[in-house]
């Protein structure tokens, strides 16, 4: 098992190299002259030339790449012009907020979408099936920032049961002592019910927004793969040998249908991490997405590049986890490695 784990971790290396190369290229094709940009708008040609030297932009590309990789290995992603902090520490500080929101949205949508997909497939043609298809088609058409705004309008402005969409906690509450960085978990660990409720009520709307967004692809693939598994020969065999309907659906069909669902989770994560940026902007959520958006507006490029790289690495790790869990479910994958 350890050998497989190491082997699988090794296979992420090409992806990592690709990500580093692409992010390096992105830093070198900044609009206009990179040196002029870093020297500032009022710089003289001499000053620009100096900056160019200092940044090593006068050296050949492979050399620049080597020093870029060296910097990365030291965790140096550059300075943010807006916050004045190293990009890495900014990202570290804001990552838990994004992670909490994304995971909350994902778990919520899995809890709804997977059972919905199963029931829709098992009762093909029923009302639930039609509802599932309608939800799926409408769901993939919803711009995530639009859903967020609608929810804010309905639950904050009209019904006034939701707090103002301004961050993880309202101004009167204080953050729990940091253990995991997830407010829900930290407040539970600190047995602080008030903070838990406050952070939960803030998390609910953005989390639901993300969940609605992720619902459609998960329900769609669950339904489709369940349908295809239900028409397979071994399900017919299971029925012909008199296994109960429950056993056929759960042990035989669902476990097989899970495989494509797990594979699709990679794609869902890709969408979620992107949608996260938009949702953070709508709800002024202090995560790395809104950090990147603020930096973009201020033409502060180092944080944006750091953000892209961090997201890519996070995504590679998530894919690794998905792949390993796939192996746990499917013995054929275990044998082939």
């Amino acid at each position: 098992m350890l050998k497989i784990l190491i082997g699988r971790i090794l296979t992420t290396i090409p992806a990592l190299i690709g990500v580093v190369v692409v992010s390096f290229l992105l830093t070198r094709v900044l609009p206009g002259d990179t040196a002029a940009y870093f020297a500032g708008p009022a710089a003289t040609p001499q000053a620009i030339e100096e900056v160019r030297k200092k940044l090593g932009l006068d050296r050949p590309l492979p050399e620049q790449f080597a020093s870029y990789v060296r910097d990365l290995s030291h965790g140096n992603l550059g300075q943010s012009l807006t916050t004045g902090q190293p990009v890495l520490s900014d990202i570290k500080a804001r990552l838990p907020a994004s992670a909490e929101l994304t995971l909350f949205g994902l778990v919520l949508s899995l809890l709804i979408a997977v059972p919905l997909g199963i029931v829709a497939a098992v009762r093909q043609g029923s009302m639930i099936d039609h509802a599932c298809r309608a939800i799926v088609t409408a769901g993939v058409s919803l711009p995530v920032f639009f859903t967020g705004l609608l929810l804010v309008y309905v639950f904050y402005f009209i019904l006034q049961i939701s707090p103002a969409p301004l961050g993880r906690l309202d101004v009167f509450a204080s953050a729990p002592a940091e253990i995991t960085g997830f407010y829900l978990l930290d407040s539970l660990l600190a047995r602080d019910g008030a903070t838990f409720r406050a952070s939960f009520s803030q998390l609910l709307l953005p989390g639901v927004t993300l969940a609605i967004f992720a619902l459609a692809p998960i329900a769609r693939i669950t339904r489709a793969s369940m349908l295809s598994v239900l028409s397979m020969d071994f399900v017919r065999t299971a029925r012909a040998s008199g296994l109960s309907r429950r056993k056929v659906i759960m042990t035989y069909a669902f476990r097989n249908a899970l495989l494509p669902v797990v594979t699709t989770l990679g794609m869902v994560f890709s969408f979620l991490l992107g949608a996260n940026v938009l949702v953070e902007k709508v709800f002024a959520w202090p995560g790395i997405g809104s950090y990147a958006v603020e930096a973009l507006i201020a033409s502060d490029f180092a944080p944006v590049q750091g953000f892209v790289l961090a997201m890519a690495i996070l995504y590679i790790v998530l894919n690794l986890l998905i792949d390993l869990s796939y192996r746990l479910i499917d013995p054929r994958m275990r044998a082939s490695s």
Partner: peptide, 25 residues
């Protein structure tokens, strides 16, 4: 395959953000 894998290694919307930020708005 390598090109596709490299692109797929990024969350797609995030990559699009990075590309537009780098190439120009």
């Amino acid at each position: 395959g390598r090109i596709a894998d490299t692109i797929m290694a990024f969350p797609l919307f995030v990559l699009a953000m990075g590309i537009v930020a780098a190439l120009g708005n």
